[in-house]
């Protein structure tokens, strides 16, 4: 293995992505992702200093919509397929105060 990323990196990334990974999965993902990053090292030596990043294929600008109301979704239809709902709202386990 080329050690482009470590098991600790993989564990951190899994936390960021909110994915549970078992110790075996950490081992496997570390090996697989490391292999990919090793393959992706082909661009490491390109001289990209004066290259503009390309984020969108078709150059458009100022795509805007008029401030006009459209009909809303039906709350009952939406909440009917929600994993948990109560009192017209979506119910979730306690959120622990990470954000406001």
């Amino acid at each position: 293995m080329s050690q482009r990323l470590t098991a600790a990196d993989v564990a951190k990334v899994a936390r960021l992505a909110r994915l549970n990974v078992s110790p075996e999965e950490v081992e496997r993902y570390t090996r697989q992702l490391d292999g990919m990053l090793d393959h992706f090292a082909d661009i490491d030596n390109l001289d990209l200093a004066n290259v503009e990043p390309m984020t969108q294929p078709y150059p458009l600008v100022n795509v805007l919509r008029a401030d006009v109301e459209q009909p809303c979704l039906d709350r009952d239809e939406v909440l009917a397929v929600a994993p948990a709902a109560e009192d017209g709202r979506f119910r979730v386990p306690p959120s622990g105060g990470l954000h406001e």
Binding site: A17, R18, L19, N20, V21, V78, V81, A82, P83, A84, F90, V92, P93, P94, S95, G96
Partner: peptide, 26 residues
């Protein structure tokens, strides 16, 4: 990232939100 078990689709029940996210996505 929107597949988090809050509004639609699968949810694996859990006692706190981060466990719910991770178990659901797992």
């Amino acid at each position: 990232a929107r597949y988090d078990g809050v509004r639609y689709g699968k949810r694996v029940a859990a006692g706190d939100i981060n466990t719910m996210y991770a178990d659901t996505r797992e």
